[in-house]
Amino acid sequence: MDIIISQIEQLRNFISEITFSDIDKIQDDTLLFEEGIFDSLGFLSLVSFLNEEYGVEVTNDELSEDNFKSIKAIVEYIAKKQNSRLD
């Protein structure tokens, strides 16, 4: 649970910093793309961040709204990727 909370905070901080958005406006369920928070470079930076920070390699098939629409979705996606590595 602590790991998830820390991931959420890390992602909030990262997204706020790279998108110049007020951190208070980025909640777990904020729709990051519909709210216009992310642009292309921001999204690319997020994908790089997931790789560098959590060892998650995003494949082309996984570039879907379901995996990235909110911080909650991203955390679930990270868990799924990490679990599949353990299997």
């Binding site: 793309f33 992310f38 642009d39 292309s40 690319l44 994908v47 082309n60 570039l63 879907s64 990235f68």
Partner: peptide, 12 residues
Amino acid sequence: KQNVSNMKLPPI
């Protein structure tokens, strides 16, 4: 590589 008509996300 993404298809723009199927994508809500920015291109990578």
